[in-house]
Design a protein around this nucleic acid. Sequence first.
DNA 1: CTAGGGTTAG
Length: 554
Amino acid sequence: MLHSGTHPTYTALRSLLEPLLKFNHVPLHILSYVPIFQCLTGHNLSKLGQQIHAHMILRGLEPNAFLAAKMVAMYGSSGDLFSAMTVFDKINYPTVILYNSIIRACARYGYYEKAIGIYFRMHSLGLKGDHFTFPNVLKSCADLSSVWMGKCVHGQSLRIGFEFDMYVGTSLIDMYVKCGDSTDARKLFDKMTMRDISSWNALIAGNMKDGEISVAEDLFRTMPCRNIISWTAMISGYNQNGLADQAFCVFEEMLKKDSNVKPNWVTIMSVLPACAHSAALERGRRIHDFASSIGLDSNVCVQTALVAMYAKCGSLVDAFRCFEGIPRSERSLVSWNTMITAYASHGCGMECLWTFEDMIRAGIKPDTITFTGLFSGCSHSGLVDVGLKYFNCMNTVYSVKPRVEHYACIVDLLGRAGRLVEAKELVDRMPIQAGPSIWGALLAACRSHHNLEIAEIAARMLFVLEPENSGNYVLLSNMYAEAGLWKEVDNLRALLKCQGMKKSPGCSWVEVNGKAHLFIGGDTSHPQAKEIYMLLDMLLEALPGEDKGSWLHT
DNA sequence: CTAGGGTTAG
């Protein structure tokens, strides 16, 4: 926005607007408006643009295709797609520039189908796309992961002669990569005469997405030069593939060896998950300190990623401290969701509810993730009726339609509280097809509350829905064993054997003073195993209430 | 105009 009278845009705009204001009664030529809209583009000034637009209408001025392109770009750049479309639709003889502006606006704000649709209309009118058109159309195909559409556009770009354009080439690589067709992306890359650093980066990201880590590493090593995006692609690629240590090492290597690159907020966000899943709290703190040292700790995305990192490392205190550090007015939907989820995973149901209510007060509209977080928080704290209350009004009050994952949470909520009959009834009358997550939640609840009758129903559904998941057979078999139904146990064991399955053992580990301690389900190989099991027994004794069984299994 | 991106139950 224009904050002060000294802002360059402001001064430029004033000199442009002067004739408009001075000669209010003199009809100006429409082309006088061109520099005005150009000036407003990219500064989030669509409100001001609208006023000038109104000024035109009052004077009875209709934009031609050239001016309309500038107006569409102005509205489009600030996300006002509605106004952009209105201007666009009124033009009878559109030009390529006008099409480019509207396609770009649609592609930038996620209206991918619209962007592609408009492109095809343009094509059918005999207008040829140029090197501004194709990258935006291809980006839309990429984000919809529609190879079919992408190949069609690819063909048209070849016919028009953009085979050797670097931007179009890179966009094509990106499109094939995002559609999961890395082979075609590679072919294109090998054929390119001029390669940009972005072409390499797109291919690296693609191979990382496919789990082709060594191919990505080769590309990274052999590329002529690397920028911050190349490094970040490697870091986030390792994290996507669960290779946290490699991600962290590459991050450190980048800091040590490549002094030409400067880490930015995306880099920090990409490296943080490397400490968010094991007991790597110290590593997380180091990255936090580093982010602060280069002034990136005031970025909302970084702050939100820090909240998630601390929560996953087990430090709810630090997570909350980071959340509190985000100015209220800057907290995004994702920030609130992250904090709610953090409380939920730490079993703080009440705090989940307070945070949710606070979010509503702050004027942020909840989404589907907000509610999964909220319900799982209620579920872990036994806040059954509050959870149900929110579930029943999520659509009417907050206009978020319940989805499968919400039903799964509610089944879990009822199930943990032992209200299995209600849970089963909910599954029976839910409007969506119940999948493995639903039946799985029900089966787990039956296990901890020893309800064999409903467990059998859920298990049979799961045997059909995911026959390869051995856990379901084992769970039911254990329940039969508990009830002393040895014949049924044998039947299930036989079934399991003839399908050639083995339950993969459960395992966990902790890091103490930098040394990892590994535990496999039922194993006693740890040097202090005896003491550990004794302590576990003591903990179980000390636990309050009826629900001890389920603690062991969650 | 192209490349890297924070939140999802158990």
